[in-house]
Design a protein around this nucleic acid. Structure first.
Length: 499
RNA sequence: GGACGGGUAGCUCAGGUGGUAGAGCAUCGGACUUUUAAUCCGGUGGCCGCGGGUUCGAGUCCCGCCCCGUUCACCA
């Protein structure tokens, strides 16, 4: 036997359901199919302001509008009432006056609730307190809302509810919608930038028979009719490069990657990457293009190249600083890891400056650890680090004249790693050796070491033109451009534990 | 996984040393025909995250668990 307990939330819902049946009993439909608006609220406001400028006498202004939106506030004054109506772009006040409405319409306002979608027509005017207002002649309920919205003044601040019920967050907190609007503008600016430069946007598989293109643990799933395990992709890289083999010269993809790793303020298990590949280009040329892309997007989204991130001012004007990785380590950590390419000596050197080095770390990962601990914390203003040790980058081409290095760079802004790029390895013999080295690391227990992809090697044997490739973490860039401390603030529905 | 902070009405939050659970907003009733965090009067609304324990008595003390956040570690 379940005990019946009355929560007040249920009472609030019951109350709205009663209004709903009351509306139906008058023959009205509380969930309409369609509503013809004359304009958006923002457009109506603009039209009114324009008319105001032209008219000598406010009495001459006649701006009619039929508007729709969600009712977010209601102030009743006896025989008149005010409400706020919000559509996607703007808000306008509604003014209901008993005399100006048809019989019974004013009384029927009683069946409306905050959160209802309403359509209203009338003429626009300005109240004596200066608020642009629609003087309503007729209105109709478009959708009944059955649950109460968060409070109007404080909004919704409970972080968990904000993430789990993002729709409430978006309704209650206007700045949240602005933040996502900025992310949307950013992605759109990137598309335009690349499309204008002759890049083709393509789509490659999300389900991979062999996970590749990055060092990360994949999610595993199973295809039933093929009776075959599949992996959610950790990167599109190997497929995009197959397209270069096939004759595409400039391609990019903006899509989701999935990595089965820990989640924190900069990692979500599924995240969005831009990857692009350009034939006949190398990493130095791509560095210029990357800088141009970033600055153009920042300029377009923010209208400036100066930005504030977590209390620090960042100057993103070109040119951006470029430092060789080993020079940056010399500068900030005070040790020369380039001079000691041998694993144990490098480990001792790193330990000598207080960086903890695990027994199992190889040379490449030692360099990576020192970089993360001792260099990245200084990288507030945009900085390119380039020329990485070959061990860390099994898909990158070796640097001309320096076989211990690869032609690779990363960009850091606000201490966030924003991208990773390199001259693409297209020598199938070298690539096979690198895969075999990864396989050895896997045998030694490195779950993230890359798999050998025989079909990819076949493609390289057919021949891939010289090329450079770039990957940008879209969510990280969105964090930077929206001054967000957590990646969850720029992902509509971030991953949370099931309740 | 460790440490710290949090979980009380639909929302935002109070609740010294244990003693019948509060406010504002929302909601319901009343007044008000240019208000805007409208105002004024009155009312409803609570498995105090979940489960044990101590106690005459637990929102409060003890133990375990769940969820969220911050941070460290792990992982890259």
């Amino acid at each position: 036997m379940h005990q019946e307990h009355h929560s007040s939330e249920q009472d609030l819902i019951q109350n709205r359901l009663q209004k709903l049946s009351h509306i139906r009993s008058r023959g009205d439909e509380p969930f309409k199919h369609k509503f013809e608006r004359s304009s958006l609220i923002g457009e109506a406001r603009a039209a009114f302001e324009a008319a105001e400028k032209e008219a000598a006498d406010p009495q001459e202004i006649h701006v009619e509008a039929v508007l729709a939106g969600r009712m977010t506030s209601f102030r009743s004054h006896g025989k008149s009432a005010f409400a706020d109506l919000r559509d996607e772009g703007a808000k306008i006040q509604l003014y209901f006056k008993k005399d100006a409405l048809s019989d019974g319409a004013f009384e029927a306002l009683h069946d409306l609730d905050l959160g209802d979608f309403v359509g209203a027509s009338g003429n626009v005017f300005r109240t004596r307190t200066g608020e642009i207002t629609l003087h309503v002649r007729s209105y109709e309920l478009l959708t009944k809302s059955l649950r109460p919205l968060p409070e109007k003044y404080h909004g919704l601040s409970d972080v968990e509810t904000r993430y789990r019920q993002r729709y409430l967050d978006l309704v209650a907190n206007p700045e949240v919608k602005e933040k996502f609007g900025r992310r949307i503008a950013m992605i759109s600016a990137m598309r335009e930038h690349l499309t204008a430069r002759g890049f083709a946007e393509v789509e490659t598989p999300m389900l991979h028979p062999i996970p590749g293109g990055a060092t990360a643990r994949p999610f595993v799933t199973h295809h039933h009719s093929l009776d075959q395990d599949m992996y959610l992709r950790i990167a599109p890289e190997l497929y995009l490069k197959r397209l270069l083999v096939g004759g595409f010269e400039k391609v990019f993809e903006i899509n989701r990657n999935f990595r089965n790793e820990g989640l924190d303020s900069t990692h979500n298990p599924e995240f969005t990457m831009l990857e692009l590949y350009e034939a006949y280009q190398d990493y130095l040329g791509l560095m210029d293009d990357t800088e141009e892309l970033f600055v153009s997007v920042i300029q377009q989204v923010l209208g400036a190249t100066t930005l504030t991130y977590q209390g620090e001012t960042i100057e993103a004007k070109r040119p951006w600083k470029r430092v060789k990785l080993f020079d940056a380590i010399r500068e900030h950590a005070g040790i020369d890891l380039e001079a000691v390419p041998e694993r144990d000596t490098a480990a001792r050197l790193a330990t000598s400056i207080g960086v903890e080095i695990d027994e199992t770390l190889g040379y490449g990962k030692i360099v990576d650890t020192v970089m993360s601990d001792r260099v990245v914390p200084y990288l507030v203003h945009p900085t390119f680090l380039y020329d990485y040790p070959v061990e860390l980058s099994p898909l990158a081409k070796k640097k001309r004249g320096s076989p211990a290095l690869v032609e690779r760079f990363q960009v850091f802004v606000g201490r966030l790693e924003l991208c990773n790029a390199f001259s693409e390895l297209n020598d199938p013999v070298d690539q096979r050796e690198r895969f075999q080295e990864q396989a050895r690391q896997r045998e030694q227990g490195d779950e993230e070491a890359q798999y050998l992809d025989e079909d990819y090697l076949t493609a390289l044997e057919v021949g891939m033109p010289p090329a450079a490739g770039l990957g940008i973490g879209i969510d990280r860039l969105a964090m930077l451009l929206t001054d967000s401390a957590s990646i969850r603030e720029v992902i509509f529905f971030p991953q949370l534990r099931n309740l």
